[in-house]
């Protein structure tokens, strides 16, 4: 059986509402890795990288589960139904599913952008032994402001539209996705501390990086990776985000810290 043949797509969770792909390790493992996706367009842009990361880690002997929250990707629910508390609940369900499939109790979580605070906030109920966060959003209010600005710029973007579109045409939307007022408020209120401190922050924000000490960590827990990721570049809104150095950094950290 080739590696991709062993990667199993399935639905799980209450009522089979969540979609996931399990990457078995092929040998006995002492820990497993849960990949917590970011939300919105970041999720679609990171899909390839998440798959590469899952394949890499599974190839190195760690079982991996990647999955979609309710209202995201292939999971049930509409995009406008995504809600913070439900995302945390889904992480707990996914962790249970990963333990059930792998037989491994120790789980390390990885999350990019909003996937970072989701993994950190769900760390205790999900029973994570560790969390790695890639450019986690730690100032929710600033993030909401930035997304509002980008949405406004998108409507005026004449590389995308023949003529600028009216503001009323994108009420309650961020970069292609419907966002309900509850989620908007929940994201705006995001601020550490969360249930756990990450053992590693992967920083690809360049000059715009916040003060990661707000997460309760010092510089030894931050790894700066170049080049910077163009998360906020409208011209590359639909470009996949790929970073080989990031894959190597995650893999090396998981093996070193948990050896």
């Amino acid at each position: 059986m080739t590696r991709h043949e062993s990667e199993l797509p399935f639905f799980f969770g209450n009522g089979g509402e969540l979609f996931g792909i399990y990457h078995p390790a092929g040998r006995k493992a002492d820990r497993a890795v849960l990949l917590c996706a970011p939300l919105g367009q970041d999720h679609i842009r990171c899909h390839r990288l998440y798959r590469q990361l899952a394949t890499t880690l599974a190839g190195e002997g760690l079982p991996v589960l990647r999955f979609d929250y309710y209202g995201c990707g292939d999971s049930a629910g509409a995009s406008g139904e995504v809600e913070w508390g439900r995302c945390l609940h889904d992480v707990v369900s996914a962790a249970q599913e990963l333990r059930r499939r792998s037989g491994v109790p120790d789980i390390v979580a990885f999350g990019a952008r909003l996937g970072g605070p989701i993994a950190l906030a769900a760390a205790q109920p999900a029973g994570f032994t560790d969390v790695l966060a890639w450019d986690p959003v730690i100032d929710g209010a600033a993030y909401v402001t930035r997304l509002d600005e980008m949405q406004e710029a998108l409507l005026q973007d004449t590389r995308r539209f023949v003529r600028p579109r009216g503001q009323g045409e994108s009420q309650g939307q961020w970069l292609g996705f419907e966002v309900n007022p509850t989620l908007r408020r929940q994201i705006a209120e995001l601020r550490p501390p969360w249930g756990m401190r990450p053992s590693l922050v992967l920083d690809t924000l360049g000059a715009t990086a916040p003060d990661w000490r707000e997460l309760g960590i010092d510089a030894s827990h931050v790894r700066v990776i170049e080049p910077a990721t163009p998360w906020d570049d409208l011209a590359r809104l639909e470009a996949a985000i790929i970073s080989h150095p990031l894959l190597q950094a995650v893999s090396a950290h998981v093996h070193r810290v948990h050896a």
Binding site: Q41, I44, H47, R48, C72, G73, D74, A78, S79, G176, F177, E238, A240
Partner: peptide, 14 residues
């Protein structure tokens, strides 16, 4: 293109 099967902005799912 290279967007996975959920489609751009989840259009294919909808």
């Amino acid at each position: 293109g290279l967007v996975h099967h959920v489609g751009p902005f989840r259009q294919t799912v909808d």
